[in-house]
Amino acid sequence: MDKLFEGLLNHHIGFVVWSTLAFVILFVLLRALAWKPILGAIHERERHIESALQAAENAKAEMARLTSENESLLKEARAERDLILKEAKELREKMIAESRATAQAEGAKMIEKARIEIEGQKAAALADVKNQVSSLSIEIAEKILRREFADQSKQEALVSDLLKEVKLN
């Protein structure tokens, strides 16, 4: 049995040695020819994924920055629009007020001019009426006096009446 065991062991040891030697050679060949390129490809893929993730992160940060800039630009544009609208409204109100003031001043001038013209026409008409009344009064007085002084007795009666009025006053 010892011999059998020794024969099997020798046979098995040779098999183990040749198997180990084949494994080591295969391992060295695989390591030299397959593992390095496979590991290199895996590392390259990892670097590519990391750079893609970094680029995505950078793009995300850039988008956030651009969004923030756009919002601030929109706020500025809205504020500027509101300021322009406010200035336009103030200018419009100022122009309306100036137009009103100018129109009122022109209206007041026209009214004053018309009043002066009316006063002048009124004074001229009054003077004309006075002239006509005085002319008529003189004509009437002349006619009355001619009639009254045509008769000597009426002249004496008128003089005596006038003298009585003068003494009474």
Score class of each variant (00 low, 15 high):
Ala55Pro: 03
Val16Lys: 11
Lys143Thr: 11
His11Val: 06
Leu30Glu: 10
Asp2Leu: 12
Lys113Arg: 07
Leu73Trp: 02
Lys60Met: 07
Glu80Arg: 00
Ser135Tyr: 05
Ser72Gly: 05
Ala125Asp: 00
Ser135Asn: 07
Leu168Arg: 13
Ser137Gly: 03
Glu69Gly: 04
Arg65Gln: 13
Ala157Gln: 12
Ile49Thr: 08
Ala64Asp: 13
Trp18His: 07
Thr102Arg: 07
Ser160Trp: 13
Lys75Phe: 03
Glu165Leu: 15
Leu8Pro: 01
Thr102Gly: 03
Ala105Gln: 11
Ala41Thr: 15
Leu53Gln: 15
Glu90Gln: 05
Ala59Gln: 07
Ala22Glu: 05
Gly14Met: 00
Leu136Val: 02
Leu136Pro: 00
Glu46Phe: 10
Glu156Ala: 13
Glu156Asp: 07
Gln132Leu: 10
Lys86Leu: 01
Leu158Ser: 06
Asp161Gly: 10
Arg81Thr: 05
Phe149Thr: 02
Ala55Asp: 10
Ser51Gly: 05
Ser68Gln: 04
Leu26Ala: 14
Glu93His: 00
Asp82Cys: 04
Lys94Ser: 05
Thr102Ser: 10
Leu85Asp: 01
Leu30Val: 06
Ala64Leu: 12
Ala123Tyr: 00
Glu62Asp: 08
Lys113Met: 10
Ala22Lys: 10
Ala79Leu: 09
Ala61Cys: 03
Asn10Leu: 13
Val159Tyr: 14
Ala103His: 01
Phe27Asn: 09
Glu50Ala: 15
Gly40Trp: 06
Lys3Phe: 12
Val166Gln: 15
Phe23Ser: 14
Arg100Glu: 02
Gln152Asp: 09
Leu53Thr: 13
Met1Trp: 13
Thr67Trp: 06
Ala55Tyr: 06
Ala64Arg: 10
Arg78Ser: 09
Asn58Ala: 14
Ile144Glu: 02
Lys164Asn: 11
Glu69Arg: 06
Arg31Pro: 00
Lys167Glu: 15
Phe5Glu: 12
Glu156Gly: 02
Gly14Asp: 01
Thr67Cys: 04
Asp151Ile: 13
Ala125Ile: 00
Asp128Phe: 08
Ala150Pro: 04
Leu66Glu: 01
Glu139Lys: 12
Arg47Gln: 12
Asn58Tyr: 06
Leu73Phe: 02
Met110Ser: 06
Leu163Ile: 09
Glu71Pro: 00
Met1Ala: 12
Lys113Leu: 09
Leu126Glu: 14
Ile38Thr: 08
Glu148Gly: 06
Gly120Val: 13
Ala41Met: 11
Asn58Gly: 09
Arg65Phe: 08
Arg31His: 07
Glu50Met: 10
Ala141Leu: 05
Ser19Cys: 13
His11Leu: 10
Asn70Trp: 08
Val16Pro: 00
Ala32Leu: 15
Glu76Asn: 13
Ala22Asp: 07
Arg81Ser: 13
Ala41Ser: 12
Gln54Thr: 09
Glu76Leu: 10
Leu29His: 01
Ala41Ile: 11
Arg31Asp: 11
Arg147Ala: 14
Asn58Lys: 14
Ser72Val: 14
Glu156Lys: 12
Leu4Tyr: 06
Lys130Leu: 01
Ala124Asp: 03
Leu26Ile: 04
Glu80Leu: 01
Met1Lys: 11
Lys164Gln: 14
Ala114Ser: 08
His48Tyr: 08
Glu165Arg: 12
Phe15Ser: 11
Gln132Cys: 03
His12Pro: 01
Ala52Asp: 13
Glu156Met: 06
Glu93Trp: 02
Val133Arg: 15
Glu6Cys: 08
Lys130Pro: 00
Ser160Cys: 08
His12Leu: 02
